[in-house]
């Protein structure tokens, strides 16, 4: 009964992942049936140490899953600002747009994750990209009643001008 590399990554089992990688380094970029890599599982479950370990081993943070999900969108949706910043530090595309109709910023707004919104804006996330259904980050914040995020977005706009 052994866990897959994806489950081990999600559960933060760094030493076990290291052991698996030493036997088969291709596991680093192994995508599951939906296209998710171990790095994406770790990002989705907020495993910061695992994310850093996998990046150090050379995991590609730019890989996207079948529906164009990325490690950055998963971390932004989960509100894991430390992982968001780690990924942004590795040159990922900050405005990846997936088939679910969202960018990392839109997911952070949707999840009411103020610090993630701030981190993404500070790194130049595009506030004009709308969701599939036509919601900009600002319109989404207003519609969801996420007042603090609305304020962060307004302050950011004021800073731009």
């Amino acid at each position: 009964d052994s866990l897959s590399i994806h489950q081990l990554a999600a559960q933060g089992e760094v030493s076990q992942v290291a052991a698996h990688l030493s036997k088969d380094s291709s596991l680093l970029s192994r995508q599951d049936e939906r296209g998710f890599t171990p790095l994406m599982w770790a990002a989705a479950f907020g495993e910061k140490a695992m994310v850093d370990f996998l990046l150090e081993k050379g995991a590609d943070p730019k890989t996207v899953a079948r529906e164009r999900e990325s490690a950055l969108t998963l971390a932004s949706s989960g509100g894991y600002v430390d992982i968001v910043e780690s990924l942004l530090g590795h040159g990922v595309d900050i405005d990846t747009y997936d088939w679910n109709g969202g960018t990392p910023l839109l997911y952070a707004v949707r999840g009411n994750h103020v610090k993630c919104v701030e981190a993404l804006l500070a790194k130049g996330a595009d506030m004009t990209i709308e969701s599939d259904s036509g919601y900009s980050p600002m319109a989404l914040a207003v519609a969801l009643g996420h007042k603090k995020i609305q304020k962060v977005l307004e302050d950011h706009i004021l800073k731009l001008y």
């Binding site: 009964d1 866990l3 489950q7 999600a10 559960q11 599951d32 939906r34 998710f36 994406m40 599982w41 989705a44 479950f45 999900e69 969108t73 998963l74 949706s77 997936d98 679910n100 109709g101 969202g102 839109l106 997911y107 949707r110 999840g111 969701s131 599939d132 259904s133 036509g134 919601y135 319109a139 989404l140 519609a143 969801l144």
Partner: peptide
């Protein structure tokens, strides 16, 4: 030993429940 398995990551539908703009 009982293995605890995490469910596969998924992203929420961003505008679920909101009126279409």
């Amino acid at each position: 030993s009982q293995l605890s398995l995490y469910t596969s990551p998924s992203l929420p539908n961003i505008t679920l429940g909101l009126p279409a703009t």
